[in-house]
């Protein structure tokens, strides 16, 4: 492990931290354009974070230490996840210690802390949000794992960079099983990041909200960390999508300044396209009733399983 690899590693996390709010800003901009609204600034998420970091924090009287730890753990988990996903280079020293299954575990850990923290104060909303979040999670998590499984079977490895490298070097990367997986992945992405058919990030209506219900008790710096973590999560998911389904442009060989020159614009282009695509999906689809969500996620899970099935049937 050379120094340059560690530098890439740190760079990647730093880039993710910096780019995640912008990506959300871009997504919101696209949505606004598609819906004939005036678009908010690309930097609005940044301003929000800054505002939150400068406010007085209010914590419920009966909150336990777990409540105060959780935002840091969630944020740390997401930042670490950004270091595992090969968004720019595939020579990442951290990846040796954490493969794709560990990545899913990391997301699960973040979710668990988030839901526990939501239950900590003991308000009706907190527990409601926690329950709904777990309802989304218990189907979305295995679906994600199965998506990764298909890619892992193709590459005989569960290490994401190996998968990316392998898929990028394939003739066309057109594996029949991956088609199903891609559909499943998009559904999981929407559900896990509280996007529109599952949750509406812009609502505080108790009948529908999931993510917002959980974070209702947080304020100021804690809320800022959680929001930032949520943005990072979206960014990470999109990057996982790139790593599995659009692996082109990632610096493959020992990454040098030259590799980065290719990788960063490629990543930016892919992110722009993904943001626009997500905005489109969110615009054309309507928010589901909460009891429809399991059906939606079960479809995602079954699509992922089908991907595995089709892969074994056709790919082997």
């Amino acid at each position: 492990m050379s120094a340059i690899e560690w530098i890439t590693q740190v760079l990647e996390v730093a880039l993710a931290l910096a780019a995640a709010p912008v990506f959300l800003g871009w997504l919101n901009q696209c949505r606004a354009w598609l819906q004939n609204r005036r678009a908010p600034s690309l930097w609005l998420p940044y301003r929000n974070l800054r505002k939150l970091f400068h406010k007085e924090a209010v914590i419920a009287e009966n909150a336990s230490p777990l409540f105060r730890i959780a935002p840091y753990v969630v944020f740390g988990a997401m930042a670490l996840a950004a270091g595992i996903i090969p968004s720019m280079g595939t020579q990442l020293p951290l990846v040796v210690s954490a493969d794709a299954i560990a990545l899913v575990g990391l997301f699960a850990a973040a979710r668990m802390f988030m839901t526990l923290a939501a239950m900590d104060v003991g308000t009706a909303f907190g527990t409601l949000g926690a329950r709904r979040e777990m309802m989304v999670g218990f189907l979305a998590e295995p679906a994600l794992l199965m998506v990764i499984f298909v890619a892992s079977m193709l590459s005989s490895s569960t290490a994401l960079p190996v998968i990316t490298r392998n898929l990028a070097s394939g003739h066309l990367g057109l594996s029949p099983g991956l088609a199903f997986s891609a559909v499943a992945f998009v559904l999981v992405l929407l559900a896990e990041n509280a996007r529109i058919p599952v949750d509406n990030p812009a609502t505080h209506l108790e009948l529908t909200m999931i993510h917002e219900a959980m974070v209702l008790e947080y304020s100021a710096r804690h809320l800022a960390l959680i929001e930032w973590a949520a943005q990072l999560k979206l960014f990470n998911y999109v990057c996982i999508g790139f790593a599995l389904f659009l692996p082109w442009g990632v610096a493959r060989a020992q990454i040098g300044p030259l590799g980065l020159l290719v990788a960063i614009p490629a990543l930016a282009a892919k992110l722009a396209a993904a943001g626009a695509g997500l905005a489109l999906i969110e615009t054309v689809s309507a928010k589901m009733r909460v009891m429809r969500i399991p059906e939606f996620l079960a479809s995602a899970f079954l699509f992922a399983v089908l991907g595995l099935l089709v892969h074994v049937l056709l790919g082997a």
Partner: peptide, 10 residues
């Protein structure tokens, strides 16, 4: 062709 077949199934 395989991809087409998979798409049909999808």
């Amino acid at each position: 062709l395989d991809s087409c077949a998979a798409l049909l199934l999808l």
